[in-house]
Every structure is written in structure tokens, then in C-alpha cells.
Amino acid sequence: QVNIAPGSLDKALNQYAAHSGFTLSVDASLTRGKQSNGLHGDYDVESGLQQLLDGSGLQVKPLGNNSWTLEP
């Protein structure tokens, strides 16, 4: 069960990665100043990332080996 409060997208993504045990490689300029609506409930990694990114204009991309990145 994930419980991440709304706020900074950077912070939300870092909390989610730490909670879910995956690696997220992101260029900080992509997420700077963006906000997230947070995340509450049970999600697989990709669904949770998509939910956190909702409205940010960013997309999640798998890199393999439980690693992910973001792209515009």
C-alpha cells in the first residue's frame, strides 16, 4: 500500500522509488517545479508512476532490470 502526499513531483517520485524498490533515472530539469497529486493505494510500478506523472506532460519508459526513466 502506497501513501504519498501531494506536492513536489521530485519528492513524490523519490518516495515511490524507495517504497517500491525500483531505480528511477531522471534528468532533474524534467521534473523541476512540477507538482504531483500524490498516490494512495496498491499499484504496480508502471501504473503508480503514470499516476504520479498525471498532468506533468512526462511519460514513463522502462529501461529493464527494474529501472525506469522519464521523457517528455
Rank of each mutant, 00 (worst) to 15 (best):
G64D: 06
P6F: 06
D42Y: 15
T69I: 13
S25F: 15
H40E: 09
Y43S: 01
T69Y: 09
A5W: 09
G41A: 02
I4R: 01
L53S: 03
D27P: 09
E46G: 10
A28K: 11
E71C: 11
A17D: 03
Q15T: 09
Q15C: 12
H19Y: 13
T69K: 10
W68N: 00
K11F: 13
A17C: 08
Q15W: 10
V45A: 06
G41N: 03
A5G: 10
G57T: 03
N3M: 11
Q59T: 13
R32F: 14
D10Y: 14
N65L: 10
Y16T: 00
L58R: 01
L58D: 00
G64I: 02
D42E: 12
L49P: 01
D44G: 07
Y16H: 03
L9D: 01
V2A: 07
S20G: 12
G41I: 03
V2R: 05
A12R: 04
A18W: 09
S47I: 09
W68T: 00
L24D: 01
I4V: 06
A28S: 11
L39Q: 02
Y43Q: 03
L52D: 00
G7P: 01
G41R: 02
L39M: 06
L24C: 08
L70Q: 02
A5R: 09
G48P: 01
G55E: 04
A5P: 14
Y43V: 06
G55V: 03
L30F: 07
V2H: 06
T31F: 06
L53C: 08
S25Q: 14
H19T: 10
S36Y: 04
S25M: 14
S8W: 12
L9Y: 02
L70G: 02
A12P: 01
V26G: 08
Q51S: 08
D44K: 05
N65V: 09
N65R: 08
G21L: 05
S20P: 03
L63I: 10
G55L: 05
G64F: 04
N14R: 15
L49Q: 02
Q1V: 13
S29P: 04
L58W: 04
D44Q: 06
A12T: 07
Q15L: 12
L52Y: 00
P6I: 05
D44A: 07
Q1A: 12
G57L: 05
D42I: 15
S25Y: 15
V2K: 01
K61V: 13
S8N: 10
D10R: 10
L52M: 06
Y16G: 00
V60N: 00
Q50C: 13
S56M: 08
H19F: 14
P6E: 05
L70A: 06
G21F: 06
G38W: 05
P62Q: 13
S29T: 12
L52E: 01
L24V: 07
L58A: 02
